[in-house]
Design a protein around this nucleic acid. Structure first.
Lengths: 196, 196
DNA sequence: AACGGTAATTATCTTTTGTTAATCACTCCG
DNA sequence: CGGAGTGATTAACAAAAGATAATTACCGTT
């Protein structure tokens, strides 16, 4: 029995993938289902897994030397979840990637599909697109730290991610913006007062 | 007359490039020499140039609505200089990329070499490496904003970029760290006092 | 309805940063 | 030698953020 929604999904991710390659490709991927609180990658992990979030929301966090839980990234639908420690820095992940919602991830073993990607020009194109997307997100985020104040960052964040704002606790958003939850609460208050 | 140092340079950048392809490839690239103050890309530019810095140092900056000159990035040897606005966001560059030292850049027209890159698996590998490098730098920088205080960011920056610190004015470094030059000066003073 | 757990807000105080302007240090150039 | 220009430091004040703790709000469970 063919799962059309799944086929459709592959077609969208790997634009131009030929029908005869679908069988090979599907065997290399795995759908992972996570409940809130379950983790995709835990701290210290070294396996080169890369995931594409089909549904749900992932929080990347670390516990710093003071013992505080600091959220580094919030990732949701159509975004790539991967440990940059493992993939880009060749070291155990300092971050833990946990689901905040029921989450469905297309998981792939990075070194395993490496050759397949290169053999398949169209798929390598998709890989390039994902890298571009991640670099774009990362630079835009970085830009906000250099160009804007915490308050401006929050306003921009709400504007750019209206959905996420209503899906996760403010305390996680605060750390992503580089401030404390207490400070974010004050910022929200200031904005609200100014609106009247 | 063959310029061996140039060949060597190409070989290093495009690992695995076949000798018979060198001729084609070299025609697509151009060495650009910039004096301090000269710009690689100016604000408003739309041409999809990508550069590989062989020697020198580039500062990416923008003038914000208050009229302040804000440095976003400092790029030097073996790094890629490209406008993420133009390449990743398909919009005119909001940033200006100027040389702070006599700088030598290998410039390529991105759309033009696109097909060559894809046809040449090994070169596409280099492209992937560069994207990884940029993503790595970007995420590491981003991380420092989420995990560390301005003072810690400065200490880390000096540790990771001892060379750059002595090559550019502090005021540029301050903005890259997301603070004002005045604040950086105070941070430096605090650190110096603590050392005694 | 009472309880426990968690998130958000508020309060208080300390520390740091932003802002603006003045001063100091240094270099280049006439 | 002197002056212009630039970058770094310092000063003084206002504004914002961090830290800690108390309070409030909300939710699901019993």
């Amino acid at each position: 029995m063919i799962d059309f929604s799944q086929l459709d999904f592959y077609a969208r991710i790997f634009k131009g993938l030929r029908l005869e390659d679908v069988k090979d490709v599907m065997g290399l991927f795995k759908f992972v289902h996570l409940q809130p609180g379950e983790v995709f990658l835990k701290e210290g992990a070294t396996r080169k897994y890369v995931g594409y979030i089909r549904k749900g929301l992932i929080r990347a966090y670390t516990i710093n030397e003071k013992g505080d839980d600091i959220t580094f990234l919030l990732l949701c639908e159509n975004q790539i979840v991967a440990s940059h420690d493992i993939i880009l820095l060749n070291q155990p992940s300092r971050f833990c990637y946990e689901a905040l919602e029921p989450t469905e991830i297309l998981q792939l073993d990075f070194p395993l599909i490496q050759t397949i990607l290169q053999r398949n020009p169209k798929m390598d194109e998709s890989r390039k697109d994902f890298l571009h997307q991640m670099l774009r997100d990362s630079l835009t985020h970085l830009e906000s730290f250099v160009l804007f104040s915490p308050e401006e960052r929050y306003i921009n964040f709400v504007k750019s991610n209206p959905d996420i704002v209503n899906r996760v606790p403010d305390k996680y958003i605060a750390h992503v913006l580089g401030i404390t939850p207490v400070s974010l609460s004050r910022i929200r208050k200031r904005i609200a007062q100014r609106k009247r």
